[in-house]
Amino acid sequence: MTNEETILKEINANYTQSEDRAIGGILTITPEAVKSSPNKVDELTGENELYIPVKYIESIGIEEKFSNGVKSSLTNGGLRDRLRIKRKDGQPEFFVISNLTEVVDDLQLVINGDTLNLDENNKNPELGSLLLKGIAYLFGGIALLLGVLYLASSNIAVGILLLFAAIIGMPYTRRIVGDALGVRINKWTATVLFILFWITASQLLA
């Protein structure tokens, strides 16, 4: 990584180096690359930096815990869901981090070249993230409740649309669906889809 690169985000991360070992360090995100630097202890044992240029990243996702079996997961960080960065050559890299869904969304913005929105997200990451998640779960919960009620009242089309809105609106269910489909739906795309589902349902009720 060159000195001219702008650091967008630095995160404490355990990098899964092999099936039986994870090393602690820092994951650094810039507009040009993702870099994993080992902590001082692992650096003394000869561990090197991992450097992945953004142009060589095929996809960003979440690797479910225990995906490589229970025995291996005990030593490689697989006891928790992990960040998965897949290179265009097919090789995946895994990291144990906090705020996993948020980091996945941020990395997707970087891959898309949309660092302006990432900068806006990180002005007050803790408060902003909690506030957005709270709003998402509030409106998603309302959509879920109304969807069930409309389905029970035989207004099936409206009920299904509102259930779709609930699924796409709440971060947890959105991640499950995204992982099942092999796609990553960021929060801005989810917001647009959520509004479209609501508007369409309202039109059917008009």
Rank of each mutant, 00 (worst) to 15 (best):
S67Y: 08
L161S: 08
D179N: 15
G140W: 06
V110I: 10
N124D: 13
V70T: 13
R184W: 11
E120K: 15
G46D: 03
T200W: 14
I185K: 03
T189L: 14
E19T: 11
G61T: 04
K187L: 00
S18Q: 12
G61S: 09
T6C: 03
E49F: 09
V104I: 01
I11M: 08
T2W: 10
N14G: 13
N99M: 05
V148Y: 13
D89V: 02
L151T: 09
E102M: 07
L132K: 13
K55G: 07
G61I: 06
R80H: 12
G141T: 00
G182H: 10
L151E: 08
N48H: 10
T6F: 12
I168V: 15
A165R: 06
A136W: 02
N12I: 10
P38S: 04
R80L: 07
I195F: 11
V104Q: 04
T200I: 15
S98A: 13
P38F: 07
V70C: 08
L50N: 01
L116R: 15
N121C: 04
I195A: 09
L79Q: 11
E32F: 03
L131P: 00
V34I: 15
K55L: 06
G46I: 02
T200A: 15
V34W: 05
E19M: 14
L50W: 01
Y51M: 05
Y137G: 00
D179V: 09
I23L: 12
E93P: 02
S154A: 09
